[in-house]
Design a binder for these strands. Structure first.
Length: 344
DNA sequence: TAACGATCCTGATAGC
DNA sequence: TGCTATCAGGATCGTT
């Protein structure tokens, strides 16, 4: 499931592969992919055709490509429009290069495949992912939802099996605080639909003391707060569980009853686990297959509790448990993460 | 106004 | 073999 580290991996790939390229044609192959686009698929195509991508930016799990030049090639500062993307649970951005161009070895390549540091040759995905994941890197159009053709013959594909992700071409609005709207651009703007999304834990402009204050002002369970993108963005179910385990907190602890130091530790833990995952190129592009095929070795490098029910806690050895929470699964250690007493 | 639960969706898998 | 139920979960929307 794409959370912040996975989305950042994709953003960095887009920054390398599609900036400076001009959209020639847009094909929407599944209406759900543009369900949030005012005016639908036709509007998306009309707003992108002839436009050039100028920056790849991310806030939390949202990423966008600014279209900073108009049809006459005049640059707009700050960028006033963007192609906004959310990958949902299974979304991928794939770049298809024209025959014989740029990458001699190129076929369809996941934008997040760049596990090698910038400047080095892209790693071959088939050599870095377990077989179960390699199978999921498609040269197929089975789940191709939107196809952007560039004027140079290349293409950008939005592939999304479960159709929770979406694309939309929208106007940008000022951030309000003058700080950059997201990672990847200095422009103090962000797409209008993202205006309510809080800054994420890797954002230098995030006020962490204020985050602790706002979290304690909530009267809710701490895992629910971690997943609330309007409080702090980028954290999904996987890294929420990992952060809670590192901070030794059960997800049902009340935010208003936690000490500031406990919340600071929790946010530090979330920052830490996502930073580590980012360094590894993201946990996975589709965790689904890990459960199904048991490719635990890949996950085990960075995940202590998620998906590991019945296994020993890496810290104390107690048997990890799975609980229902918000219609989701939560994984935790019964010894390190005591459930709070049920209050009347 | 804040909190919270239902809902959307697809495909793999388990169970019968 | 084929059918049905279950599971995964981010964001939004309606209800409390």
């Amino acid at each position: 499931m794409p959370e912040l580290p996975e989305v950042e991996t994709v953003r960095a790939g887009l920054a390398r592969r599609v900036l400076g390229r001009t959209v020639a044609e847009v094909e929407v192959r599944h209406p759900r992919a543009t369900r949030r686009q005012p005016g639908g698929a036709a509007e998306l195509a009309a707003r992108l055709r002839g436009r050039t991508f100028t920056a790849a930016v991310r806030r939390g799990k949202y990423l966008w490509l600014t279209v900073g030049e108009d049809d006459d090639g005049r640059s707009q500062t700050p960028p006033s429009e963007a192609l906004l993307a959310h990958l949902g649970m299974s979304g991928q951005m794939l770049v298809q290069e024209p025959e014989g161009a740029r990458r001699a070895e190129s076929e369809t390549v996941a934008v997040g495949e760049h596990l090698a540091p910038a400047g080095e040759r892209h790693l071959d995905l088939t050599a870095t992912l377990p077989p179960t994941l390699v199978r999921d890197v498609p040269a197929t159009t089975a789940h191709l939802r939107v196809r952007l053709a560039f004027t140079d013959g290349g293409e950008l594909w939005f592939v999304d099996q479960r159709t929770f992700g979406h694309l939309m071409a929208v106007d940008t609005v000022p951030t309000g605080d003058g700080a950059p709207g997201g990672y990847g651009s200095d422009a103090a703007v962000l797409p209008e639909p993202v205006a309510h999304i809080a800054r994420d834990l890797l954002d230098p402009a995030l006020d962490r003391a204020d985050l602790v204050r706002r979290t304690r002002a909530r009267r809710t369970e701490v895992k629910r707060a971690l997943l609330d993108q309007s409080l702090v963005s980028g954290v999904g179910n996987i890294y929420a569980d990992e952060a809670l385990w590192r901070a030794r907190l059960h997800g049902t602890r009340r935010t208003d009853l936690l000490r500031p130091a406990q919340l600071r530790d929790l946010f530090d833990a979330a920052t830490e686990v996502m930073t580590e995952a980012l360094a590894a190129g993201g946990t996975s592009f589709d965790a689904l297959y890990v459960d199904v095929d048991g490719a635990a070795g890949y996950f085990a490098r960075s995940l202590a509790v998620y998906g590991r029910v019945g296994r020993p806690c890496p810290r104390c050895g107690a048997t990890l448990r799975r609980e229902e929470f918000m219609n989701r699964s939560s994984f935790s250690c019964p010894r390190c993460q005591r459930r709070p007493p049920v209050r009347a």
